[in-house]
Structures are given as C-alpha cells and as structure tokens.
Computed example of a mutant assay.
Amino acid sequence: MLKFVKNHMETIDGVANYPMISLLIFFVFFVLLGWWVLTATKEHIKEMGELPLEDDNQQNKL
C-alpha cells in the first residue's frame, strides 16, 4: 500500500510545493491570530470570556 502511495505521489507534477504551501498557510494564520490577540481590546476579551456564563444565567431566570 505504501509503495502504491509513494509511486502515485511521484507522478503528480509540483507535489513538492504542497508542503511549502501548507507551511505558509499555517504561518500566516498564526501571525494573524497573534496580531489579533495583541490588538484586541480588554473589554472585548472580557465580554467574550463571559459569554458562556451569560447563557447559563439567562436560562436560570426563565
């Protein structure tokens, strides 16, 4: 089975580019995520952190 996969992968043109593209997507995602974390306001982070608790409180009141 592994021999079949290896032989099949060798027939694909430009197959060596896929790992580099995957690494680039991974890197860009985490750079953007880091930028968002560093620029997010504390009020927004606090509001998002309290969302799960607010749903429980609203259900108890009903």
Score class of each variant (00 low, 15 high):
residue 40 A to I: 08
residue 55 D to L: 07
residue 23 L to N: 14
residue 45 I to S: 08
residue 48 M to D: 04
residue 19 P to H: 14
residue 5 V to T: 08
residue 18 Y to M: 12
residue 37 V to E: 13
residue 9 M to N: 02
residue 42 K to H: 05
residue 36 W to E: 06
residue 43 E to I: 00
residue 31 V to D: 07
residue 33 L to G: 15
residue 4 F to D: 12
residue 19 P to L: 15
residue 9 M to K: 06
residue 49 G to W: 02
residue 38 L to A: 14
residue 56 D to Q: 09
residue 31 V to Y: 13
residue 19 P to E: 11
residue 20 M to Y: 11
residue 57 N to F: 10
residue 8 H to W: 09
residue 19 P to F: 11
residue 20 M to E: 06
residue 28 V to T: 15
residue 45 I to V: 15
residue 4 F to P: 03
residue 48 M to V: 13
residue 40 A to R: 02
residue 3 K to G: 08
residue 57 N to I: 11
residue 11 T to H: 03
residue 16 A to L: 05
residue 53 L to T: 02
residue 58 Q to P: 00
residue 24 L to I: 15
residue 52 P to L: 08
residue 61 K to W: 03
residue 53 L to V: 03
residue 14 G to H: 12
residue 4 F to T: 15
residue 19 P to Y: 12
residue 48 M to A: 14
residue 15 V to R: 06
residue 12 I to L: 12
residue 51 L to P: 00
residue 39 T to N: 07
residue 18 Y to P: 01
residue 37 V to R: 15
residue 14 G to Q: 05
residue 7 N to A: 09
residue 47 E to A: 09
residue 49 G to N: 14
residue 29 F to D: 08
residue 60 N to H: 06
residue 43 E to K: 07
residue 53 L to C: 00
residue 28 V to F: 13
residue 17 N to D: 05
residue 49 G to Q: 11
residue 17 N to E: 06
residue 49 G to V: 01
residue 54 E to H: 03
residue 55 D to N: 02
residue 33 L to T: 07
residue 18 Y to A: 13
residue 32 L to K: 12
residue 2 L to Y: 05
residue 5 V to W: 04
residue 8 H to F: 13
residue 24 L to N: 13
residue 29 F to L: 15
residue 10 E to H: 06
residue 29 F to N: 13
residue 11 T to D: 10
residue 23 L to F: 14
residue 27 F to V: 14
residue 33 L to P: 00
residue 10 E to P: 00
residue 2 L to R: 05
residue 43 E to T: 03
residue 52 P to W: 09
residue 9 M to F: 10
residue 54 E to D: 06
